[in-house]
Design a protein around this nucleic acid. Structure first.
Lengths: 147, 147
DNA sequence: TTCTTATATATGCAAATGCAATCATAGCAA
DNA sequence: TTGCTATGATTGCATTTGCATATATAAGAA
């Protein structure tokens, strides 16, 4: 097999494995009565960003289109988990701010999400596998981020 | 870092890298006036399956929900790239059959898709990276396929 | 300042997806 | 055979996403 073939095979595996794992994990979250993955990612990113972040920055971090981030925030704010606040440094902008309820919700979700990741994904891999996976994916991500 | 942390980090990288790469590659296909990736995958899978395949089998292979495969086939058949045929061995079932136009379309798409994969994904990886990626993803897929 | 262009967010409408049926046929047990 | 349950495919309806545009503000040029 040539390197080109190896690389394209990796891409194909990435597509399929992503789809299968996501289906399994979202399914477990839903079965446990939890919100979708995107909500967790959003809340976690906000916590990591000190509780608030600009909408466009959030979208970029989470690799979601801006207009979809607008609407994801609409939904999550509808449950009181985040609030919008005008950005004092740029009147065009808006900050998404996590609420106390949002922090609590993320904490609630974590055990379910962790269990799902572990059983559907982590348990299939050794630590070395995981490290190799991360290293390779980082290279791709780095290239795409410049691109 | 513990193994658990390594594994969860790999999951997180998988999610983000998948989203970025898919966005870039779909964008290039669209810019080249080509249909979405899902059409390519569908046509390729049909060619590999000898030109025809049961709808449910196709859905399973491509990791798409059945009802979404029904509708993907509606769209692709609307362009004359596949046809539906009753399954002679099971009157509930239907076969998706690739047409000559479908084979031609897949061949047309390939150079664009290949260029996109190569520049957005493959070029970031050595052959060894790609092999390691594939090996790790296969393990995950194998677990998900039983589970 | 005024004009032009760029950026940040939001929105109307179309297309795609998810969910919960529905319909037809298979397969198997009584 | 009849009846019951399972399977394959589809469809109506709600939700989500993508695309094109709109609105407000910023930033820089004339």
């Amino acid at each position: 097999m040539t390197d080109n073939e190896r690389q394209r095979l990796a891409w194909s595996q990435l597509l399929r494995t992503h789809a299968m794992a996501l289906r399994a994990i979202e399914g477990k979250l839903k079965a446990a009565g939890q919100p979708p993955l995107a909500w967790y990612d959003l809340l976690l990113e906000l916590e990591r960003g000190g509780g608030e972040m600009r909408i466009g920055d959030l979208a970029e971090r989470l690799v979601v289109e801006r207009y979809n981030m607008t609407r994801l925030l609409d939904r999550v704010a509808g449950e009181g988990l985040v609030e919008r606040r005008p950005d004092p440094t740029d009147r065009r902008g808006a900050l998404a701010v996590i609420t106390e309820a949002g922090r609590a919700k993320r904490a609630d979700m974590w055990p379910h999400y962790r269990a799902a990741i572990d059983s559907e994904f982590s348990d299939a891999l050794t630590g070395a596998d995981a490290a190799a996976l991360t290293a390779a994916l980082r290279k791709v991500k780095a290239r795409l981020a410049e691109g």
